[in-house]
Computed example of a mutant assay.
Amino acid sequence: MDIPALLRLTPLFAQAPAAALTPLVALAYVQDAAAGTVLARQGDAADCLFVVASGTVHASSLAAGGRELTLFVAGARQVAGGSEVFLDSGRGNAARHAATLTALTPARVLSLPASQVRQTVFASPDLSRALVTHLARREAELTARMQRLVLTELGARLAAYLLQ
């Protein structure tokens, strides 16, 4: 597997120069997961950043009453359980996974230790810039999606969905 190429194609690191990714490549290990394999459970310490190389990973959360809610499905070159690895109180309170991550299909996943990823990214201006750019873009996308859901009448939302 070409780990440097995979990281360069991942939206989280796409804006970073290739040379800045070298320390992350050294941290990465490849994990093959059969369909149904749980990579992380909601509420567990977010100790790994997962990058999907192939296959799909389902992120779900349990709602009140035990109903499962699909948050997203990550495919190749996407990060699963990413944002929380960058949260750390500095007082030994590790961030927690907001979702359960399960291989929906057979998947090859790149795992990177969260504490080392955090340290590497925060120490590199290029990687920090790539992270901020990615998170700002995601926030803008989520805000636009929320506005469409909240501010658009049901009929117009349904028509837009059917046209897509």
Rank of each mutant, 00 (worst) to 15 (best):
R41V: 01
L27K: 06
F50E: 06
E68S: 14
A74F: 12
R108D: 07
L6I: 12
R129I: 00
Q42N: 11
R77P: 00
L131Q: 10
D88K: 10
E139I: 14
F86K: 02
L39H: 03
G66Y: 07
I3P: 12
A140G: 08
E68H: 12
R145M: 05
A123I: 09
L163I: 00
L163Q: 15
F86S: 03
G65Y: 12
L149I: 11
V79K: 02
A28F: 07
T120M: 07
L49V: 04
A35I: 04
G43Q: 11
T105V: 03
A98V: 07
A156S: 10
A33L: 03
Q119R: 14
T120Y: 09
H134I: 01
R138Y: 00
M1T: 08
V117R: 07
G66T: 07
R96A: 15
P23K: 02
A34W: 03
L151Q: 12
Q119Y: 11
S128W: 11
D44W: 07
F86V: 06
V150H: 10
Q42K: 05
A35G: 05
A19R: 13
E153D: 15
H134S: 06
R129K: 12
H58S: 05
A156F: 06
L39Y: 03
D126V: 03
A98W: 03
L163V: 00
P113I: 06
F50P: 00
V85W: 13
G82F: 04
L71W: 02
A19C: 01
A26P: 03
I3K: 11
D44N: 13
R138Q: 15
A46P: 00
L162F: 12
V30P: 04
P106S: 09
A5E: 15
A28M: 01
L154D: 08
L110P: 02
Q116E: 14
A34N: 08
T22D: 10
V132G: 01
A63W: 08
Q31Y: 14
A34I: 00
L101R: 08
G36I: 13
E84L: 07
L154T: 13
H97N: 14
A5S: 15
L131N: 05
T102E: 04
S115D: 12
A46I: 06
A140P: 01
D47E: 15
A136L: 14
S115N: 04
R137I: 05
D44A: 14
H58R: 15
N93I: 11
R145T: 12
P17Y: 02
V38L: 01
S128C: 07
E84C: 14
D44V: 00
S115E: 11
L158Q: 13
T152S: 06
A16I: 13
Q31V: 13
T120S: 08
S61I: 11
G92W: 09
P23Q: 04
D88W: 15
A19D: 10
A46R: 09
V150F: 11
A160G: 06
F122I: 01
